[in-house]
Amino acid sequence: MKARVHISYKTGVLDPQGKAIGLTLANLGFAGVGDVRQGKLIELELAETNADKARVSVEAMCEKLLANTVIENYAIELDNE
């Protein structure tokens, strides 16, 4: 099973890269873009086939290593194909 972990800064944490992307988009003439936040995507190949168990395990990985919960949120997406 494949797991995708999306990690982004919490609201209120300055994201200079997101800010720069927003400015550049505006400079390129893309109007109407509000706040831009940049995050990261981590893809994991898991041996586990049970989705509930996989989610518990990936949550533990996020808490222990993948995300810094002082400043980051994470969201887990499981892919059963």
């Binding site: 944490v13 300055l14 200079p16 890269q17 720069a20 810094n68 002082v70 400043i71």
Partner: peptide
């Protein structure tokens, strides 16, 4: 936490 420098 320590974040990316404000000047990037």
């Amino acid at each position: 936490a320590l974040l990316l420098n404000a000047g990037r």
